[in-house]
């Protein structure tokens, strides 16, 4: 009997640079909002009320639709005690969930480790974007970090490789050069692990863009393109359960009304298109996307 059970998938979208939450989910019936934000507020005609206390800003209407269908939760007031008020320290804390000490291991890397204790699937956690976020970094937990999905692979398009025999020889040498060795020091060991993970992940993930087709046309913005990559990898069925990507900058301290609006418009349509794409392929039910800042 075929099972309809599918492993749950978490997509984390980091709003880099600290989102202005009060101008995202607006506490419009609270006089403190209007008293303390005489200028940097969302005017009343730009609000989409959720109830008699809270409202979405109007340019994130696609998300309101998801909310109205009962597919979205808003969690207020997440934080930690004794904030040092440094953005960077705060981001360290968000990525490690260690508010009282300098954490080293990423919280999502721990999730990946628990899902795949043997580190057998290097695609269990996939980051799409520039560099690996600290949330996914942990010694001994292999994850894959992809910047450009179509050209991913070790020693790809190298002019010194003119035959399959060359490729095999050089990749075998690469694997041995990056093999574990005693006494080389932590950085060399870390590089060795990274090289071995790259080699393993690349072979598998390359099928994703080739196997993908969809009628959904994503909006033309960077986060929509990233979520399309997420959809491609998810739909390829490679066992990925944790995705990570980021968008920003939400570091909008001054003259923020224009830039904050644009960011939320981009994200709203990107998420709408992403779920439309997954629904078209019958692959949306197991996927949760979490936005945080």
């Amino acid at each position: 009997m075929a099972s309809t059970y599918k492993d749950p998938v978490l997509v984390v979208l980091e709003l880099t640079g600290a989102n202005d939450y009060l101008n995202t989910i607006v506490p419009y019936s609270d006089p403190l909002y209007w008293d303390n934000r005489p200028k940097v507020h969302i005017s009343e005609d730009q609000l989409l009320p959720i109830d008699d206390r809270l409202a979405f800003r109007s340019d994130i209407e696609p998300l309101k639709e998801i909310y109205d269908q009962g597919d979205m939760a808003i969690i207020h007031g997440i934080g930690f005690e004794n904030s040092p008020r440094s953005h960077f320290r705060a981001m360290d804390i968000w990525h490690t969930c260690e508010p009282d000490s300098i954490g080293i291991d990423g919280w999502l890397a721990k999730v990946v480790r628990d899902l795949d204790p043997g580190g057998e699937n290097v695609l269990k956690g996939v980051s799409l974007g520039q560099g690996l976020p600290r949330a996914l970094a942990m010694k001994g937990v292999p994850v894959t970090s992809v910047n450009n999905l179509p050209t991913y692979g070790v020693l790809s398009s190298n002019p010194a490789i003119t035959s399959e025999r060359d490729r095999t020889q050089l990749l075998e040498s690469f694997a041995r050069m990056y093999a574990p060795a005693i006494g080389t020091g932590p950085t060399m060991e870390y590089l060795g692990q990274a090289g071995r993970d790259a080699l393993r992940g690349a072979d598998i993930i390359r099928v994703a863009p080739q196997a993908y087709s969809s009628t959904v046309e994503y909006a033309n913005n960077p986060i929509a393109r990233r979520l399309r990559d997420v959809a491609q990898v998810h739909l390829a069925g490679l066992g990925t359960q944790v995705f990570y990507t980021a968008y920003g900058s939400f570091d909008t301290h001054y003259d923020q009304m224009g830039s904050h609006t644009k960011l939320w418009m981009d994200i709203s349509v990107a998420i709408r298109d992403f779920f439309a794409d997954l629904r078209e392929h019958g692959a949306s039910e197991e996927v949760v996307i979490m936005l945080f800042s």
Binding site: V122, S127, G131, L132, A137, P142, V143, T144, S145, V146, N147, Y152, G153, V154, L155, S156, S157, N158, P159, A160, I161, F174, P186, T187, Y190, L191, A194, G195, D197, A198, G201, A202
Partner: peptide, 25 residues
């Protein structure tokens, strides 16, 4: 430091440098 490196970035770095030094032209 080692925070420059993750598997994806390492692959890019390796591929870039290897392409340069593998090009006899």
């Amino acid at each position: 430091g080692s925070e420059w490196i993750d598997p994806g970035v390492l692959m890019r770095r390796v591929n870039f440098a290897a392409r340069v030094f593998g090009d006899v032209s």
